[in-house]
Write a protein that binds this DNA or RNA. Structure first.
Length: 484
DNA sequence: ATGTTC
């Protein structure tokens, strides 16, 4: 048996790229890391593996707690963590969803080629930066009342459709059609709604961005064709979440759950894993509030995309209908899904925190456009390495509750990043060496997001592809990037 | 991630 010794934790190699922490102590199931040895080296001396072990203590967790190849430490539960927890006798944990509820990514395709935008990068990056609100605090494409926010919370992208800010086709090209019907605006606090009312259609800060990219590589031509992707094509990637509203929902419910379910908390190895027992009033209330924040985030990305369409049709000779949403994926959510556990179909709260749903062809949840080819999975890398489009792999249902990675994964904290890099230097280097045009509200944010703070996204994707959970379709490289 | 510290 090959083992990997990470100090306090020893992992056993099950097969290539699959490492297991055996069930021990209060763990209810084993834990698994899907990674190469190189990727394991990068999480061997922080809290990632301890947090993964801790997540296997959650009541009702099934099969194994998982960490995707891009995993790193987070609040209580690893970023890159996946846990399928029984919806009947298990629990739901806000820390295993994340503070930024429905942080996610969407890709817009265009009929433009790289030749069409070369020489116009400066204009494009400036126009996008003006048109799309970014940075901390308020300022959104749509600023309304608390009642408007409530409509968005309950109806998601359907609200955008009714208000002329989305098309039927947009809804058909989004996970869950851009709308979770279980959402309940009355489960979201006034404080959260007030934070959200000036932020609908805004990027925020941190790792969130809008990036114009060119397709550099196509790995599966037949699938790329179905996705509407070809070499040299210009696409736009939008990465943002539920802003202050989702953050407030997470904060509110963590506190309520800690106070109400102290008995369960006492059994857990980390307070940050606070969970509400399945069937309890708070579990249902958190789920309804989380679904509402999910709807808010989808509307947020939709309004950012609407502004992007404004700019592209203005700057280039393209029609609005030429700018199509490829797909929108959530990577910080929990969802009730039916999965096979020990030969039996069980309803689970599948927690994906920094992990992307990656359903293969044939799953009934997929929209008609992708039913035969598999779900598009969009994985942002970094400003210096580019991003990937995958399709959900056949093995994902057996291995990962239908999930794969969500990004490159951070190598260092934001604090450390600011010590290692200077924003203006990072921006100038990208411009001079890689012809990438970056415009940000804050130099510190550019330093925090320097390419060097991320793991090798190629390695992450190689592992996902080799395991058959998310298969490589195409690769993109940035042309210009705006961020908070 | 985040009115960048409950």
């Amino acid at each position: 048996m090959t083992t990997y010794d990470a100090g306090e934790v020893t992992l056993e190699k099950i097969r290539e790229y699959v490492w297991e922490i055996p069930q021990q102590g209060g763990m209810r199931v084993p834990a698994r890391v899907l990674a190469s040895e190189k990727l394991l080296d990068e999480i061997s001396d922080d809290k990632t593996l301890e947090q993964l072990k801790n997540s296997a203590h959650l009541p009702g967790v099934r099969k194994h707690a998982l960490c995707m190849p891009d995993g790193h430490q987070g609040y209580g539960f690893p970023v890159g963590g996946v846990a399928g927890i029984d919806a009947e006798d298990g629990c739901i944990s806000p820390g295993a969803v994340g503070y930024d509820i429905n942080c996610g990514v969407r890709m817009l395709t265009t009929p433009l080629e790289y030749d069409d935008v070369q020489g116009h990068e400066e204009e494009l990056v400036n126009r996008l930066f003006e048109a799309v609100p970014s940075g901390l605090g308020g300022g959104g494409v749509y600023e309304g009342t608390v009642e408007d926010v409530e409509a968005i919370l309950e109806r998601g992208m359907d609200w955008a459709l009714e208000n002329g800010l989305a098309t039927e086709s947009d809804l058909e090209h989004c996970e869950d059609e851009g709308y979770r019907p279980e959402a309940d605006a009355s489960a979201v606090s006034e404080k959260a709604k007030n934070r959200g009312k000036t932020q609908v259609g805004s990027l925020g800060s941190g790792n969130h961005f809008l990036e114009v990219q060119r397709v550099t590589d196509v790995y599966r031509e037949d699938v790329a064709r179905e996705f509407g992707l070809e070499p040299d094509q210009i696409v736009v990637l939008i990465h943002c979440g539920s802003r202050g509203l989702g953050h407030q929902v997470c904060t509110d419910y963590l506190r309520k759950i800690e106070q109400t379910h102290g008995d369960l908390l006492a059994e857990l190895p980390d307070k940050e894993l606070a969970a509400a027992p399945a069937g309890s009033e708070l579990a249902d209330e958190y789920y309804r509030a989380m679904c509402a924040a999910i709807n808010f985030a989808w509307t947020n990305r939709q309004l950012v995309m609407d502004r992007t369409r404004d700019v592209l049709t203005d700057v280039f000779d393209v029609a609005r209908t030429d700018l199509e949403l490829l797909y929108d994926v959530a990577h910080n959510i929990a969802k009730k899904e039916v999965h096979t556990v020990d030969g039996e179909d069980r309803e689970l709260y599948v927690h994906r925190k920094g992990a992307t749903r990656a359903f293969p062809a044939g799953r009934p949840e997929l929209p008609p456009a992708y039913a035969d080819v598999g779900q598009p999975v969009i994985i942002p890398g970094s400003m210096g390495a580019g991003s990937y489009v995958l399709r959900g792999g056949e093995r994902s249902m057996d291995e990962t509750f239908g999930s794969t990675a969500h990004g490159a994964g951070r190598l260092m904290s934001r604090t450390q990043a600011k010590q290692e890099f200077w924003g203006e230097d990072v921006r100038d280097d990208l411009r001079e060496r890689q012809q990438v045009y970056v415009k940000a509200q804050s130099g510190a944010t550019v330093a925090e997001e320097a390419p060097g703070v991320y793991k090798d996204v190629d390695e992450v994707i190689r592992v996902s592809d080799a395991l058959g959970i998310g298969e490589r379709v195409a690769r993109t490289f940035p042309v210009c990037n705006i961020k908070g």
